[in-house]
Amino acid sequence: MLKLEEINKTYHTDKIETIALKDINLTVKKGEFISIMGPSGCGKSTLLNIMGLLDAPTEGQIKISGAVIESYDDKNVAQLRNQKIGFIFQSFHLIQDLRVIDNVELPLLYRKMSAKERRRLANQALERVGLKARTDHFPAQLSGGQQQRVAIARAIVGKPDLLLADEPTGNLDSHMGNEIMQILESLNKDDGTTIVMVTHDDELAQRTERIVRVYDGQLIH
């Protein structure tokens, strides 16, 4: 599903060179649910960003569904992100001025699709996360857990091959965190969605199939 080969990422400022990731080799199989753990600043999020094509590696190669990402041309990666990858963020990143249904429809706006079809898929995704009754609410009218469920619905509405979750329970209490985790597990088990989750929570990480540990920009085996 996803293969990272010899990935290096270095940030340069005028005087300082910071190595964020070093010689990362990682394979995520189709249908797998893995968690990435590590201390703050170790490069977990950078790794997730590179997996999600939100950032380009300084060196190395990424393969998604067997295809090598040869060009980081904006239009090309935008299309790949839209078609193949779904994102869930710690702080939800919902657009506060749009209703729940409109937030969920967002990724579909960048596809050639009728408004009717968009609405159908968005309703389907909201039903999947148990928020069918909240379509016309605004994010501010929802609890943190509900907002994250909207974000999950948005991430899955386009039926992506890969779901990347950056500390999806980080802003939630344990009860709500558990709810979110259950949804992710269900998406993985029932729908076969491949999920990569960055987390600090060891308990949640233990519920995934595999834990990848990062320390100082390197994978620890």
């Binding site: 999600g52 939100l54 904006d74 239009k75 935008a78 299309q79 992100r81 839209n82 078609q83 994102f87 990143h93 657009i95 967002l106 990724p107 706006l109 960048y110 596809r111 948005r154 386009g158």
Partner: peptide, 16 residues
């Protein structure tokens, strides 16, 4: 800016 970042993450190109 955050919204722009989000839209790009969701598949919008710079041009769009």
């Amino acid at each position: 800016t955050q919204e722009i970042g989000l839209r790009r993450a969701l598949g919008a190109s710079k041009l769009s």
